Simulated scan of single mutants.
Amino acid sequence: MANDQLGKFGVWRPYSMVTPEKVRELEELGYGAVWLGSSPPADWDGYEALLAGSDTITIGTSIVNVWASPAAQAAETFHRLDARFPGRFLLGIGAGHREHTGEYTKPYDALVQYLDELDAAGVPKERRALAALGPKVAELARDRTAGALPYLSTPAHTASLRKLLGPDTLIAPEHKVVLDTDIDRARELGRNSTSFYLSLSNYVNNLRRSGFHDADLTPPGSDRLVDALVLHGTAEQIADAATEHLRAGADHVALQVLGDDYVRDLRALAPILTARV
């Protein structure tokens, strides 16, 4: 999958909260991809409906958990979708969290084995991507997939990945958004959405690499941390901040809008984001 096929901006959303009608509207607004989060199962029966209800937008998983969905199942889904909707499905995979998986041992080895099985099943390297934060898994993403899908990261992390991975590897970070100019209200919503991740070692370790300290990372997180992880303000301010990832070397940014009406906010952002690229 060519990086430009995704466009510069997409939308990240829990898979159970995405409908064909909303995907169609996001496509019409100019977003290039919808990323299905919260670990969609590889055999979820909603993929076809989302693709059938739209014409060009990419549907990606962000991510299928390798502990929960066998590689053979993921490969079967990929081939079924690709036969009907050529080039429009990207299989994002990842190892989840040590704290939530009883058999979480040697996650790197599990990822390698999963990719080996996808190879054997004929899933092309360029049509899959890997949740990657640290350098070892990021290099695996470069060598064995189209690229990296960082989550809960900053433009500084994007810049470090681009330096590590070179010019040709896809880097498509997720970033949270609150369209609200009331800073206290925006921070409260942002903190409620990010404090959970401060109990997960992979995110905490990556945020340390990105320059945050104990005072920032102690739950529920400092204002400095929340402001970095959750863009807030006017649509213009959010668009300017989101394009920092592109300037840092990202190919694509997946916006996760927090709040009651995410499509309304994405409508407001769409023309401004288009003007920024």
Rank of each mutant, 00 (worst) to 15 (best):
P150Y: 03
S160K: 15
A172P: 03
A131M: 13
A148V: 11
P155R: 12
K163L: 15
G147T: 00
T154Y: 08
K163T: 15
T169C: 15
L170G: 06
L165R: 09
R142A: 11
P167G: 09
L140H: 05
G147I: 00
P150L: 03
R144M: 08
R144K: 04
G166R: 08
G134K: 03
R142G: 07
A132M: 02
K136I: 01
D168C: 04
E139L: 14
R162E: 07
G134P: 05
A138V: 00
H157E: 05
T154F: 05
A138Q: 04
V137H: 01
R144F: 00
I171E: 02
L164D: 06
P155E: 05
A141E: 07
L152R: 03
L170H: 08
E139H: 04
A159N: 14
A138M: 03
L133Y: 14
L165F: 13
D143I: 01
I171C: 09
L133K: 11
E139W: 09
P155V: 14
G134A: 01
D168G: 10
L152Q: 12
A146R: 15
L133T: 05
L149Y: 12
T158S: 14
L164W: 00
A146T: 02
L161S: 00
E139Y: 01
H157S: 12
T169P: 06
S160I: 11
H157N: 13
P135N: 13
H157P: 07
Y151K: 03
T158Y: 00
A156T: 12
A172D: 14
H157F: 06
P167E: 14
P155G: 10
G166K: 06
L152M: 11
L130M: 07
K136C: 00
E139I: 10
P150V: 04
L149K: 05
T145A: 15
L133I: 13
L164E: 03
K163C: 12
A132N: 04
L164V: 06
S160Q: 15
L161H: 09
G134M: 08
E139N: 05
A131C: 12
R162P: 08
T145K: 13
A131N: 08
T154V: 10
K136L: 01
A131R: 09
T169N: 06
V137G: 02
T154W: 10
P167L: 08
A148T: 12
A172R: 14
K136H: 00
L130F: 02
S160T: 15
S153L: 05
T145S: 09
D143Y: 05
L161D: 06
R162S: 04
P135I: 01
A141N: 06
A159E: 15
L130T: 02
L133C: 14
T158C: 05
E139R: 09
D143A: 04
L140Q: 03
G166N: 09
D143R: 09
A148H: 10
P167V: 07
Y151W: 15
T145H: 09
A159Y: 13
D168P: 02
A172N: 11
A156Y: 13
G147P: 03
L165M: 14
A156P: 02
T154K: 09
L152W: 00
A146W: 05
A159Q: 15
D143M: 07
P155C: 11
A172V: 13
R162Q: 06
S160W: 15
L140K: 02
D168N: 15
D143S: 10
G147R: 04
A141L: 07
D168L: 08
P155D: 04
A172M: 13
A131P: 01
D143P: 00
A138L: 06
L161Q: 05
A159L: 13
A156V: 12
G147Q: 02
